[in-house]
Amino acid sequence: MHELSIACNLVEIASQSASDAGVEQVQVVRLRLGALAGVVKESLLFSYDIAVAGTLLAGSRLEIEDVPVAIFCSSCQTITTLEGIQSFCCPLCGQPSADIRQGRELELIALEVADVQPPHT
């Protein structure tokens, strides 16, 4: 199980991005997770709560967007998404393809942040 290690990396770059932007509080961390990233979503969510303890992200929620694999089929000249990751064949014509165009993502996309505004004068 390497999801705790991944969660620690995520917390590190998210905290860094937040503090670089002068953010004081992060509510949501948005991640894109490809089906071929080799990361188990449930384990990552579980690990996230452990990894954020004592950081700027403590109390924040991790939102994960699943990204399916997409392959390019040279016969159909089309990029199509696959339902799973066990059969790399074009869903339209059945031709195998190793030309992967999407699905390896493990990317921090955005933070939903809240800045504490100075009181109105």
């Binding site: 991944i6 990396n9 995520l10 770059i13 998210a14 991005s17 937040a18 932007a21 953010v23 509080q25 509510q27 991640l31 493990l106 990317e107 921090l108 996309i109 955005a110 933070l111 939903e112 942040v113 809240a114 800045d115 504490v116 505004q117 009181p119």
Partner: peptide, 18 residues
């Protein structure tokens, strides 16, 4: 008073290793 907003990041989680 809180002012929620979206901060775009776009960074690979394993960028350091990569």
């Amino acid at each position: 008073m809180y002012n929620p907003r979206i901060l775009e990041v776009r960074r690979g989680v394993l960028e350091k290793n990569d």
